[in-house]
Amino acid sequence: MITAPLALENVTKAFKDGEQYINILEDISFTAEKGKFTAVIGPSGSGKSTFLSIAGALLTPDQGEVFVNSQSIASYKDKKLANVRLTSIGYIFQAANLVPYLKVNEQLKLVAQMKGDWDREAKQRLGQLLESVGLKARVNYYPHQLSGGEKQRVAIARAFMNNPDIILADEPTANLDQARSDEIVALMAKEVKEKDKAAVMVTHDESLLKYCDTVYRMEQGKLIKGR
């Protein structure tokens, strides 16, 4: 019985490169525990995003199992996968990827509505989330009126909005300067601890690792513990 919110078992993924298949992920096993903030580092092209996509039900592995809240999602079809993403996983991408025509509060409202869970409690949660990411004063702003750091804060709040057990972030600070990066990752770490989430962040900024509990390195298709 798997108790961790997220577990990968013997996952392998290959992509076609020209004529031949290359194993990007080779027999990877990994678990993310509640309340733990894990970092994955590694050179560009080493397969970090691929790993995170598989962990986040965006991509299916060639071999191996992925467990989200102890459910194996390997056999899930598109619609069920979408549901897993909607309810169990919160994403923070490299670009904030906000919906350009929605105001800050509407960005969060949207995911709650898609889940069919827009009630008083959700409204309260929205208020609290925006408060804790420091955007209380920006609720009625459109994305184009926000700075890069502010957008990423909205993305963080959005990731937490449906109260998922898993938070995944793929290079969330790649577009930010050092001070902003520190701020954003510190905020993520705080939220992860406070809300007891299992979080995985891919980054190549080693100065951010001080916020994380565990560090893995992606190298030649393997995930190796330690820096």
């Binding site: 986040g56 619609k79 979408a82 549901n83 993403r85 994403y91 990827n97 919906v99 898609m114």
Partner: peptide
């Protein structure tokens, strides 16, 4: 691109 993002955060095709 936007549809991709919305799908990634859980939007279904029908939506």
């Amino acid at each position: 691109n936007q549809f991709g993002v919305l799908k990634a955060i859980g939007a279904k095709n029908i939506f």
